[in-house]
Design a protein around this nucleic acid. Structure first.
Lengths: 121, 121
DNA sequence: CTTGACCCTGACACTAGTGTCAGGGTTTAT
DNA sequence: ATAAACCCTGACACTAGTGTCAGGGTCAAG
């Protein structure tokens, strides 16, 4: 199939499909006229890419194990687990940071409200 | 004082001080030789900028109320509260999203571990 | 045989703050 | 008077994925 068809089937833009190719995630054949020719399996590949992107992995990270997970169970691919671990740590760091900001914001909002209440008297 | 001195006093890089100026946050005078000349009050200004940056506000947002909060109590500046509210909402959206990713990651990690345990048998 | 829909590559823009370099001027202390 | 340390502006890089445009080729239906 051609790129537009794959885009429609997967909900991923043509632009992004070309980007994934450049990142080494998917390697379509080429027709004589230069058009990309995707196998029907490419739909699975793209769905898999979407799944990992939604887990916060980058295309570069995904490139490191995509071939493996397309052919095997995830548990078989040794690259995956360390990546999940470090990604989880990263997420947790971000959660801590965001929660701190949230608390600070709430403190300051409470102070303002209190201040305004005092003014009214 | 000159920019290097202000940088040392505040812990903010010279580069960033120039950036804050371009963003309209601070307006030093100029000496005859073109050097920026900061008043001692600039230290407070920069500390205030740091405080708001740490709350997740952008330089552009800070520019909208910095003059006011430098001269008044924060509660006096009407621009601040709506900004805090929308920033808090944004933070909460991000927290939800990150927590979802975290749960998904943990699920997948658990699946892999379970799978590997099954393999051992 | 022409029009519209599709495809190609390459490139710039965007976020937002910071690092860093080039190329050049000034000041301060030796 | 020279070297070190400081200042100036302007510009590119970086993240990471996507939008979008330019300029051009291809294909299918009328």
């Amino acid at each position: 199939m051609k790129i537009g068809e794959l885009a429609t089937l997967t909900g991923v833009s043509v632009r992004s499909l070309r980007y994934y190719e450049r990142q080494g995630l998917i390697k379509p054949l080429r027709q004589d006229n230069g058009y990309r020719e995707y196998s029907p399996l490419a739909v699975d590949t793209v769905e898999t890419i979407k799944l990992y992107l939604n887990l916060g992995l980058s295309t570069e990270e995904i490139a490191g194990f995509l071939n493996c997970v397309l052919k095997n169970k995830e548990a078989f691919c040794a690259e995956v687990m360390p990546l999940y671990r470090s990604k989880l740590e990263e997420i947790e760091r971000q959660l801590v940071e965001l929660n701190q900001i949230k608390l600070n914001l709430q403190d300051r909002m409470a102070s303002i409200l209190q201040e305004q209440k005092n003014e009214e008297e």
